[in-house]
Design a protein around this nucleic acid. Sequence first.
RNA 1: CGGGGUGUAGUGCAAUGGUAGCACGAGUCCUUUGGGAGGAUUUAGUCCGGGUUCGAGUCCCGGCACCCCGACCA
Length: 424
Amino acid sequence: MRQSKLFTKTKKQAPKDEKSINAILLERADFIYKEMAGVYSFLPLGLRVLKNIEEIVREEMNKISGQEISMAVLQPKKLWQETGRWSEGIGKSVMYKCEGNGKVGLGPTHEEMLTDIIRNYVQSFEDLPLYIYQIQTKFRKEARARSGLLRGREFKMKDLYSFHSSESDFKEYYEKSKKAYFQIFKRCDLKAIITEASGAGFTKEHTHEFQVIAKDGEDKIIYCPKLHFSQNKEISKFKAGDKCPLCKKILKQTKSIEAGNIFPLGIKYSKAMKAFFTDKDGKRKPIVMGCYGMGISRVMGAIVEIHHDQKGIIWPSQVSPFELHLISLEGGDKKISKKIKQISEKLYKHLQNSGVELLYDDREDKSPGEKFVDADLIGIPYRIVVSKRTLEKNSVEFKKRDKEKTKLVKIKEIDKFLKQLKIH
RNA sequence: CGGGGUGUAGUGCAAUGGUAGCACGAGUCCUUUGGGAGGAUUUAGUCCGGGUUCGAGUCCCGGCACCCCGACCA
């Protein structure tokens, strides 16, 4: 993509109505556009990041046999009445309600809707287990939206629901899902700590949250530095300074971002909504369910909270809007300037043809300083500069966003060099 | 939902109750080109509704929005 054609720019100053790092940087770099508190539109660069995270999540969910669907956002009151949640809990507190054909709610979560779908398809134990997920915009009337993408009223979420014929089968999958979650966070370059939390009305058992340590996080966890143990402070009987019940190391307390969570639903919904199956013994039983959530847009915010410096964002390569930032620095006399442009254009087309996703700063009216500042703010992990200085050595300059060092690479050897970096 | 704070140009800021100004951005022209370049010129604004006053960005009342703290948070 040519930067000269990108309709978004960058902002020199931080927006006055944001305090959190993710909101400030994402707005300055024009990844997102604020509509109101907790509601953002995603601009070209921001959407690319969001889609990359989505794709990582999709791949890992598919690996654990997830089947992707997309459920309706408008949810009939009738379904929510079956579980009593229209006038209790989440349906009462945070669901946006409006007049439709009768009353409808904008989906804050989808247990009711999916259980309804499933009860029409599952008849026997042979139809189970099932793992169904979607990646979709959720709506929640948060009393206090805050911290940019970390707590929104409208946000992108992956929610997977599992359906089992037995508790033991559920537990096996639950463990599998933990591994998938760790894999997702690893690919997003986030260190997630699996943390025990309350059942929050769903279950009497503990549920599990994936917490990312961050200064601006709104959760507090008590955790073992060796990660043998971590509990949400809300439920923990331990406190900082106590010894880890497993390894005896001193426990710490920290603020963190809840980037995902998984929990057993048991038969709460299947029983209330009569989602039964016929088991091997011929008896009708309620389906055992589990739920696995992950805030896609929140993960995007968390990545910025963790991966940035004074100058801007530093995207992990797998989620970066582009793999490479190519910058053309024209200058000097007209002849040289023209040559720089030629080489840059050639390189751009060549890299594009070889499948590299790159942003090409071809703007002719911007000073070198401005191009560098923009590049640092936008945060693409690898940068290539073509200038008078580099052409004198038949080279381009290569730099990693998070390193100061630059390296001259011969133009002929660019392909080989990028291959080493696993950029196509 | 309770407490505190803030609403002025596209953005960020200024303006004792008395002509709304500065910087950035954007437009035009010239010069410039390795870390937010210089000059000339143009552009656009007081959150909404009432009130006080000769006169309101400024004072009063009401509303709305945004930020922060807390409560809440499948």
